[in-house]
Amino acid sequence: MTTRPDILCIGSVLWDVIGRTRLHMQPGADVPGRIERLPGGVALNIAVTLTRFGLRPALLSSVGRDTEGDALVATCEALGIQTEFLYRSEDLPTDRYMAIEGANGLVAAIADAHSLEAAGAKVLRPLEDGALGTEAKPWRGLVALDGNLTVALLEEIAHAQSFAGADLRIAPASPGKAERLLPFLRAGHGTLYVNLEEAGLLCQDRFDDAETAAGTLIGRGAARAIVTNGGQLCCDATADGLLTALPPKVLVTRVTGAGDSFMAAHIAAERDGADRPAALARALSAAAAHVSGDLAE
């Protein structure tokens, strides 16, 4: 019998190919560093972090029935993540993400998540066929959702009966996909996790601080908005008020996945019963630990 997961992580599940160097990089630079392949994607990054807090996450995504897909699924299972609800396609390859990071942060990245977009609503079948829920008896637990799904599918999720009772936590995946979260802003459904740039894109504005950005998102209809701003003040906003906190000061050695670590730690803290200040503090500490991780030469 399948163990009921503590949370569903819906979105990108892929291989990250990350090149890192301790040197500052400019366009066209050719420098020494390290290149590694890691299990990645927003949904998977969140799931991995959740396992470290003792939770049992399940993935809803598309992974190809190719060699890379088999290896990715095996890696996920070894990490304690449930993979039996994945959509495994014979025709669609396993998605990939490639990034270059220097001492000055993310230099460039390309996300090849075309298979997830092509799979569309097929990744949500377990929420409709009885495996995890049905329209009459929807899933009522936690859901971490990322913006790598298509605009049409995200619009559907924002209003779907199968998600009506879920504790929905949503991240855009990248600034380029921030506007895909507009359906949740209009519907006033779920908690939005965005950085300052993403908040500006959602509001078609520019913000100088997270507090103003989070307050504006609430004014535009968001049920709850948590806005980060790198090493600057972070804000958790609801209609009841704004809560701010300052991240720990650390030496930044990596960038990719920091927002996912923040979101996962925040979800885990609240599931454990932490109040808003304690949950925000735990999330900021987790993100700081992630970005300050040792980088081997």
Rank of each mutant, 00 (worst) to 15 (best):
A109K: 00
T212H: 07
Q82P: 01
C234E: 02
R220Y: 05
G230K: 06
D95T: 04
V255L: 00
P277A: 12
A187W: 12
C234G: 05
F53R: 14
H189Q: 13
A108V: 04
F184P: 00
L201G: 12
H189M: 12
G176E: 08
E198R: 06
G165L: 15
I18N: 03
I170E: 02
A74H: 10
G54K: 10
E135A: 04
E155D: 15
L185S: 06
T228F: 09
W139Q: 04
A178T: 05
R224E: 15
D16K: 03
S61L: 01
E156A: 15
D66T: 05
L116A: 14
A296M: 14
A58R: 14
P248S: 08
A289G: 13
G147I: 01
V17S: 11
A99Q: 05
R206W: 04
H266T: 09
S62N: 13
R180H: 09
P248A: 07
L217E: 07
D112G: 06
G28S: 11
G190D: 00
Y87T: 09
A103W: 01
Y193E: 11
N104M: 00
L284K: 01
A274K: 13
V227Q: 03
A269H: 08
L60P: 04
R125H: 07
A131Q: 10
C203Y: 02
T94E: 00
D209L: 05
A111Q: 02
A264H: 10
H189F: 10
Y193Q: 10
L154H: 02
A113F: 01
K249N: 13
A287N: 05
C203E: 11
T191A: 04
A71M: 01
L60V: 01
V194E: 11
G28H: 05
T253F: 03
N195P: 15
L124Q: 06
L127M: 15
C76H: 08
R37N: 03
G215R: 13
N148W: 00
N45F: 11
G231M: 15
R56K: 15
G141I: 07
L243T: 12
R88C: 12
T134Y: 00
A265V: 03
A119F: 02
A158P: 02
G257F: 04
E101Y: 00
M25H: 00
G105T: 03
Y193N: 06
A225G: 10
V107I: 08
